[in-house]
Write a protein that binds this DNA or RNA. Structure first.
Lengths: 232, 232
DNA sequence: CGAAACACGTGAGGC
DNA sequence: TGCCTCACGTGTTTC
């Protein structure tokens, strides 16, 4: 876009043609014209090449930056003409969102070392389709028939599983479930039902674990030093 | 940092002091000095304020951009002195990573409309601790005893579940499992074992579904228009 | 016309 | 010293 100024003009300008930068310049200059070569020493030439390198380096730098900016425009799939400031603001927002998402996912599914239950209903999920949705999370000692137990518990409560994220590490398991019930049979109060049902489920887990090998079913082969931790 | 040049000098320079930009300038200028006030008309003053606004606007723009850049420096938790180019390159990389991560997670867990099985072993997970790890994914019609069936199948194969991500939507379910087996009993060949075992598991699923209400267990109450789709 | 965005070349400063 | 990065003010374009 901008017309390229030749180096000749450039360094002549620097040496002789200083205007705003030099306040001592007088009007009585014998030669102001750029191509008056008698004034140009080797020093001036060196300065000129320095400036040229500087200029080119700066251009490369701008290219690198703008290259990344364009990539970001594509990644956020926004208008190619989006200006830098708004683009970067959007990038900040997006990175924040993505960071939080992955954090939630990766942290949520790590089994805790103590037994826990959490039940809540999704008030905001009020699409009025006659269903009521609950989120259920619990951590406990793992056992082979836990899944079966879980399914039967929900069946007895007349509830269905929508999503289940289950993680088992070293004998302990964390389960995050989204379950639905009919509104004819369930209300917000069913939170307590779920709570009670899964408390007894965890209770059964503990008993089965505490009975040891001789009693009920055999324990998981892999043990990690968690058995000594108190139950809540 | 940079010394602020007064508007006076500035617009005088613009009008009278044109050097490199104007090629028609002659040496015979009566007044070249910036502070020759006799030349300053109201037009010049207007031009000066225009320039001042322009300058300030540009400063604001830079501030907005650099503000976002600093936020990104914090978000990526990298050195506050990281230069713009490398910072932006890192941002591109990070956004790509995060995008792919969340995409994998959110897309992987949507049940497909056709029955599918995929088994592979993690060659790269060779920590030589006597265990061999497999990743197992399958989609099929949902049924109440699926989980129990799954657990029993793995038990018969002498394998344990490390992670399980299960999603059920409208009667169809997708299960992604990471299972481990002992290296004394299992090798890479066990991929086929798993494949066969879960093919028959899916086969049982189809039979139980096709038997309808009269036969086996009752079907899920929520139905979506998928039953007519051919099985593979 | 003004407001806003961009690329440019330059001076300053860090290593 | 030279190389690199930044902030700055400007000329230009677009709406």
């Amino acid at each position: 876009m901008q017309p390229e100024i030749s180096d000749q003009i450039l360094y002549s300008f620097l040496i002789g043609g200083s205007c705003a930068s030099s306040t001592t310049t007088t009007t009585t200059r014998s030669s102001f014209y750029p191509f008056a070569m008698e004034d140009t020493s080797s020093q001036d030439k060196a300065l000129a090449t320095t400036l040229r390198k500087h200029r080119e380096g700066e251009r490369m730098r701008r290219e690198r930056i703008n290259s990344s900016l364009n990539k970001l425009r594509n990644l956020l799939s926004c208008n190619p003409k989006t200006d830098k400031a708004t683009l970067l603001a959007k990038v900040v927002q997006r990175v924040n969102e993505l960071k939080q998402q992955t954090l939630e996912i990766s942290n949520e599914n790590v089994p805790s070392e103590t037994d826990e239950i959490s039940v809540l209903n999704f008030e905001n999920c009020s699409n009025d389709d006659g269903r009521i949705i609950f989120k259920l999370s619990f951590c406990c000692e793992d056992r082979p028939d836990l899944m079966q137990d879980l399914v039967e518990t929900l069946k007895s409560l007349q509830m269905e599983t929508l999503y289940a994220y289950m993680t088992t590490i070293g004998g302990r398991t964390r389960n995050d479930l989204v379950v639905v019930g009919n509104k004819e049979q369930h209300s917000v109060e069913s939170v307590k039902l779920l709570q009670n049902a899964f408390e007894s489920l965890l209770e059964r887990s503990n008993q089965s674990v505490m009975m040891g090998h001789g009693g009920g079913r055999e324990r998981s082969k892999r043990r990690r030093p968690l058995d000594h931790i108190k139950r809540v």
